[in-house]
Design a protein around this nucleic acid. Structure first.
Length: 443
RNA sequence: GGAGAGGUGGCAGAGUGGUCGAAUGCACCGCACUCGAAAUGCGGCGUGGGGGUGACUCCACCGUGAGUUCGAAUCUCACCCUCUCCGCCA
């Protein structure tokens, strides 16, 4: 969410930046008109309150001096303000809500180095700071070659023979659910454990087990509300409701909401392995086969809370953390710098990791790493106090990234490591998590 | 679910109708003392929003929301949360 004062001081920059965003017609003038009304109301209200306060103080003094006549006279004077103050307060609340509502539906503005574009076709491949296709090729696994036609993940023998069961899942829960069994279930677990261990042991993230049900306020903080309510599952609770988290970004990021951290605590790096729940409204017909797009999936999430000065560096660092997962798994992938048309609501810049799926003969998103600036911090009221000289609190910057989507990573392993006989080789780094198994689904 | 206690500034903790945005302690910052540090002394130190070129000034905020009152941290009501005990339970 934007700072109206900043908009007022930077109308042109704001309008130019916002016009890069798809389908947004709001401009600074619309917002400043609301703010002008707000200020008018505040000025009038404050004057009335000041008068009331001054008179009330005099009443107290008059009563202390036992001057009842004067007190009565003053009370009559205050009485004339009686209606204007509550009315003014109601007006102020209304216009402040109006401004907040107008601001809260506006997407973040993109960094200058985010490419323009209307959809994913406008995304630009990224090879890291000072990177190139050559430097990337040194650390990334090459695209695998097959002596046979590689199958899609749900067709690979070890999965197709009942260990990835969509029929049973449909009986339990309907479409877009899956039941994993046996070695495939274990592989899913191994992937999650591997990623979590990597980020906690080598990347400095703190492991967190957050609630999977959250309040509306938390969802507002990380931009799911008010605009993306349809993507969520809700559970009734008391007179209200709780939402099943669509990503651990929600609880992890909101852990700092309504607080003032000390600068020494930053950067705060949090990670969690959780199920994620998405209703996938509007995705009817997309990716209906296999477990690419499910209502429930596991994901390892990384969240960083930083100072404004360090957030862009942290973004590159977080990208590297996510890439390391795929590098260690020996999976081929590419990184895309998302264009303005594909950028998420709260992001200033996003890198997508797209893993190679030989069965689909295409790249598919497996991780999304975003820097949000102070956009979410304003919504959450999450600040930090700079160290050193006495300084006012400032909003933190927030970042989030998948490290990575476990379900999709399972797909990638099945497709990339499949053998002609339907078995799947276990990547070296996963073998300790698989009791030393080098292959699954073999005879 | 039942009973009781409580929610005040970064933390602890006073404050039960007016001069309280709020004592005191800790933490923090500055200065003094010191070779330096500790200790000590002095001073400073909440957040947000208006107005003013500025010095400055006004308003709001003591869990949240309503209410009583000329005036509410303080009184009333509802709700939320935390803690203790009991019950139930993975």
């Amino acid at each position: 969410m934007f700072d109206i004062k900043w908009i007022r001081a930077n109308t042109e920059a704001f309008d130019t930046a916002l016009s890069r965003r798809k389908g947004i017609t709001t401009r600074s003038a619309d917002l400043l008109a609301i703010d002008d009304r707000r200020r008018d109301i505040i000025v009038r209200l404050n004057e009335a309150q000041e008068k009331r306060n001054a008179l009330s103080k005099q009443i107290g003094q008059a009563k202390a001096q036992k001057d009842e006549a004067k007190a009565a006279e003053l009370m009559a004077e205050v009485a004339r303000l009686k209606d204007t103050i509550p009315a003014g307060e109601a007006e102020e609340r209304a216009v402040e809500l109006e401004l907040r509502n107008a601001l809260s539906v506006l997407p973040n503005i993109a960094f200058d180095d985010v490419p323009d574009g209307t959809d994913e076709a406008g995304n630009v491949e990224y090879f890291g700071r000072n990177g190139s296709p050559e430097t990337a090729a040194k650390v990334r696994a090459p695209r695998p070659s097959f002596a046979f036609a590689p199958k899609e993940h749900y067709e690979v023998g070890v999965a197709a023979n009942g260990n990835m069961d969509f029929e049973i899942a449909a009986k339990l829960s309907g479409s877009r659910f899956v039941v994993l069994k046996g070695e495939v279930a274990r592989l899913e677990r191994a992937l999650g454990q591997f990623m979590l261990d990597l980020h906690t042991n080598e990347h400095g993230y703190l492991e967190v087990q957050p609630p999977l049900l959250v309040k509306d306020d938390a969802l507002f903080g990380t931009n799911q509300l008010p605009k993306f309510e349809d993507d969520l599952f809700f559970a009734p609770h008391g007179d209200g409701r709780l939402a099943l988290i669509p990503t651990a970004e929600v609880p992890l990021t909101n852990m700092v909401r309504e607080s003032i951290l000390s600068e020494e605590e930053l950067p705060l790096r949090l990670t969690a392995l959780t199920p994620c729940f998405r209703s996938e409204a509007g995705s009817a017909g997309r990716d209906t086969r296999g477990m690419l797009r499910q209502h429930q999936f596991n994901k390892v999430e990384m969240v960083s809370i930083t100072t404004p000065e360090t957030s862009t560096d942290e973004h590159e660092r977080m990208l590297t953390c996510a890439e390391t997962v795929l590098q260690k798994l020996g999976l081929h992938y590419r990184v895309m710098n998302l264009c303005t048309g594909d950028l998420g609501f709260g992001a200033k810049k996003t890198y997508d990791l797209e893993v190679w799926l030989p069965g689909q003969d295409t790249y598919r998103e497996i991780s999304s790493v975003s820097v949000c600036g102070d956009f979410q911090a304003r919504r959450m009221d999450a600040r930090y106090r700079p160290s050193g000289e006495k300084q006012a609190p400032r909003f933190v910057h927030t970042l989030n990234g998948s490290g990575t989507a476990v379900g999709r990573c399972l797909i990638a392993v099945l497709e990339n490591y499949q053998q002609e006989d339907g078995s799947v080789l276990v990547p070296d780094v996963l073998q300790p998590y698989m009791g030393g198994l080098k292959s699954i689904g073999g005879r």
